[in-house]
Computed example of a mutant assay.
Amino acid sequence: PCIEALDRAAWRRAWRSAGDRAPEARKDRAGETGYRAAVAEHLLRHRGLAAGAASVVLATAGTSTAVGELAAALLRPGDTVAIEDPGYLRAVGAFQAAGTTVLPVPVDAHGLCVDRIPAGVRAVYCTPAHQFPMGARMPAGRRVELVEFARSTGTLVIEDDYDGELRYDTAPLPLLAAMAPDVVVHLGTTSKIIAPTLGVGWLVARPDITEAVLAHRARIGSSPSPAGQLVLAEFARNGDLARHLRRLRRMVPPRRALLVGELADRGLPVLGDDAGSHVVVELPDVAAEAAAVDAARSRGVLLDGLARHHLATPHRFGVALGYTALTSTELARAVPIAADCLAAQVTR
């Protein structure tokens, strides 16, 4: 996340307001009422998703935790789940911890390849707004194809919208959950737009699914912590969340432009939409990827290789370059080093 974009006065104000309430004897397993209302308003305003009679908002402790809860509440050990490859391996871990079998599905320039989903899967996990890590946006036609697949096969689609608020070129496409609340569970998080240390996210799904998740929480005695929820609710209540998102959308594009410009100067194209907080530079093979990562590390810059993001045998190589977490000064120092190390492997 771009911590530099946070208005520290607004941040302190939210924490003070959140702390100015009496202790309570127990937590609400669904989440704090004010938090759920703030999330519902945020989703309607920024993502075009209306939570109402057809869908319910639950608080979560974050995306990975929510995936684990869905797996435990809805799936049985041995059930199969399809996930993008390369993709988000923490989601893979959450599914596997619940005893499910995770099957890889290739991605292309338009995201998850729907026609490659294995037969018989109970659920499909995907990141359609900004595929992680390759950065593609799933176009409208493929979204319709995925929804039709889910409805015709009885498959549940889990939509991870981890950074959907961060688009800088065009308006976002409709969420899968807005298109098909009958077959889609929507997951969101504050990790990319504010900070992962809040430890809060949300789940939006039809009532029978949210009831199953709540029943699972009751069985094992778990519920998301109220602290981060209260802070987010206060951050949103007086408009600071909306102002923060506007500031974020102003501050992040120049960072991306700096990175893309340095790469372009060295003849390196990038993959991924003008969105989110990272771009991808592909390299010819695993040896080139490892060499670039090692060279950058020796000069004090950490690069994230694509090979580690595969569930199956790695077949896409290169690095995912984040441009938000560093300060502006750190980014200006790190980007030329990263670009030089990548260029050296392309031209060797």
Rank of each mutant, 00 (worst) to 15 (best):
E69I: 04
H46K: 10
A312R: 15
V56R: 14
T197L: 15
P196R: 14
A50V: 13
V157M: 05
H42E: 12
V319C: 09
R316Y: 02
Y125E: 10
Y323L: 01
D161V: 08
A140V: 13
G267F: 11
L311E: 03
L302Y: 12
P128Q: 05
D108R: 09
M138E: 00
T329M: 08
H315W: 13
R256S: 05
A334R: 07
D294G: 01
L43H: 04
V279E: 03
S298R: 15
A9T: 14
A10C: 11
D274R: 08
V107Q: 09
V279W: 02
L303D: 00
E282I: 04
Y168E: 09
L321M: 15
A30I: 06
L331I: 07
D108E: 05
W15P: 01
A218C: 05
F132W: 15
A71M: 09
D208G: 05
V293A: 00
F317L: 00
E330N: 03
L342F: 02
G228Q: 05
A227L: 15
G19V: 08
E159L: 05
G228E: 08
R8S: 14
I209M: 07
A180L: 09
G199C: 08
A312V: 04
G261F: 10
C113P: 04
T153Y: 10
R348K: 11
T65F: 14
F95K: 00
P104I: 01
A18L: 07
N238I: 08
S17P: 00
A59D: 01
A343L: 01
A53H: 11
A37T: 14
V157N: 02
E330D: 12
G164Y: 01
A72Q: 08
R237E: 14
V293Y: 00
L187S: 05
V319F: 02
A227Q: 12
V252L: 13
D160S: 15
G318C: 02
K27N: 12
T190C: 12
T347W: 15
R76G: 07
A205Q: 02
P314G: 04
H216T: 02
G201A: 06
D161W: 00
D20Y: 05
P86Y: 02
R8W: 09
Y125I: 08
H309R: 15
A140C: 10
R249S: 06
A94N: 03
T80G: 11
A119L: 10
A215G: 08
K192C: 11
A97S: 13
A109G: 11
L259R: 04
G141N: 07
L258K: 05
R122F: 06
L326G: 06
K27T: 15
R249W: 07
R45M: 06
P128H: 03
G87Q: 09
R167Q: 13
E32P: 01
V92Q: 07
A292P: 00
S222Q: 11
A9S: 13
S64F: 09
V107E: 09
G201E: 07
E32Y: 03
D163A: 09
A91T: 14
R90V: 10
A18R: 02
H278N: 09
R308C: 08
G228D: 07
L198I: 05
I337L: 11
A50D: 12
L306I: 01
F317W: 03
A344D: 15
H309F: 13
K192V: 12
Q131D: 14
E69H: 10
